[in-house]
Amino acid sequence: MATFKLNVNNKTHTVDVDPDTPLLWVLRDTLGLTGTKYGCGIAQCGACTVHLNGNAIRSCSLPVSAATSGKITTIEGLSENGTHPVQLAWDEEDVPQCGYCQAGQIMTAAAFLSRKPNPTDAEIETAMASHICRCGTYTRIKKAIRLAAEKGGKK
């Protein structure tokens, strides 16, 4: 066990865990932030996506020891009260079915749009291709990202 300082959602936490513990389990089991989900553990499905210094990363494959230097944002900290344009678009397009993968999808979409505010459809597909939604909400995810881009651009 070792002590690590983590900046999560603009709050500093000190956690005492094994250095090889993936960030995912520190978020979920130590800090109680269960919005970030486990889906595969090998960075293939995207359910565990969080932001590290604004980049969408897979928390299931990032040891906590490598996460101490940056700012971590989880779905709980993406916005106050769910008002990020991507979250609003997800609601407006009624994207979720089971909803389990959606926190990860939203985190990737948010990081993507901050880099590329006006993406083409092909760029959306490339950016989101590393995620799996077993319910098949893909057509709505595409629409929601287009909508968020539209509204985000008007801000």
Partner: peptide, 25 residues
């Protein structure tokens, strides 16, 4: 340019944003 997008999606979480990886892992 196309590859950068793919890198961000598939590789960055382990190999990190400057390709620096994570020491010993």
């Amino acid at each position: 340019k196309r590859g950068e997008e793919l890198y961000i999606s598939y590789c960055l979480s382990c190999h990190m944003d400057q390709g620096q990886g994570i020491e010993n892992i």
